[in-house]
């Protein structure tokens, strides 16, 4: 099956170095301290942040920094078939762990000791790249909640099919069995926090693909910044400034 046609177009009409359409919205869940909906193409993720608030389980309280908790679930209706077990299975647990550790690296936890910050991420539509979308959504939600962060964390995935490096794989391309590299960076500091890869890749090609994914992350970061600036302007308007 050709994933990249000889004319240089992928299955959905993008070129190999193009990302899908991004859309973000802040403040979707009114009850939460901060929330965001993030869409990458047909992948739609909603994130909600509660905190900083009092720790619910005293035994786990940390005296010098905030406790971060994260929960990742997929809605039953998110994929083509109805999912049987939306949370608690191994993949969800691992992704929860990954998101938590990624956000922990960028939140200034030492400013909020003895408190807890909860991040809930749910996938509403899954079409490839859910991990990246979740991290981007979590970043936006944390920003919406006003939690102090070192830098934004943005993430993007890239793959390698038909001897071409492709940016932002969708579900069809992901299930082709080729390698899938997910990268999360702190754009201002230009440091990599998250790096996951599966399937085999020779090392030099891996470097190219990782570079491509990092570029993608920077593009997402630009977009997120614009959205946040836009949002701030609106808040200013409402306050009459």
């Amino acid at each position: 099956m050709e994933y990249v046609s000889p004319e240089g177009l992928r299955l959905d009409g993008r070129r190999p170095l193009e990302m899908r359409q991004l859309r973000a919205e802040l403040g979707a869940v009114s009850r939460a301290d901060g929330s965001a909906v993030f869409e990458m193409g047909n992948t739609k993720v909603i994130a909600a942040v509660y905190g900083p608030r009092e720790v619910q389980q005293r035994s786990q309280q940390l005296n010098d920094k905030a406790l971060i908790r994260c929960e990742y679930t997929m809605a039953n209706f998110s994929t083509g078939d109805r999912m049987r077990k939306p949370k608690g299975d191994r993949r969800s647990t691992e992704i929860s762990l990954v998101i938590r550790q990624t956000m922990e690296a960028c939140i200034l936890t030492h400013l909020m000791p003895r408190s807890q910050i909860d991040i809930f991420v749910q996938v509403l539509q899954a079409d490839g790249g859910t991990r990246s979308a979740c991290i981007n959504a979590a970043t936006l939600a944390l920003a919406d909640a006003g939690i102090p962060m070192r830098d934004l964390v943005t993430s993007c995935s890239a793959g390698y099919l038909n001897s071409t490096a492709l940016l932002d794989l969708n579900y069809v391309e992901d299930s082709a069995g080729g390698p899938d590299v997910t990268v999360g960076i702190l754009p201002k500091l230009d440091k990599v926090t998250l790096l996951q890869m599966d399937a085999k890749l020779p090392m030099d090609i891996f470097e190219n693909v990782m570079q491509l994914a990092t570029e993608g992350c920077k593009a997402v970061a630009n977009y997120i910044r614009e959205v946040l600036i836009e949002n701030t302007k609106q808040l200013e308007n409402r306050r009459g400034v």
Partner: peptide, 13 residues
């Protein structure tokens, strides 16, 4: 034999 609905993106350039 299952019937599923497939939704795909289609970009116009």
């Amino acid at each position: 034999g299952k019937v599923i609905k497939v939704v795909r993106e289609h970009y116009l350039r």
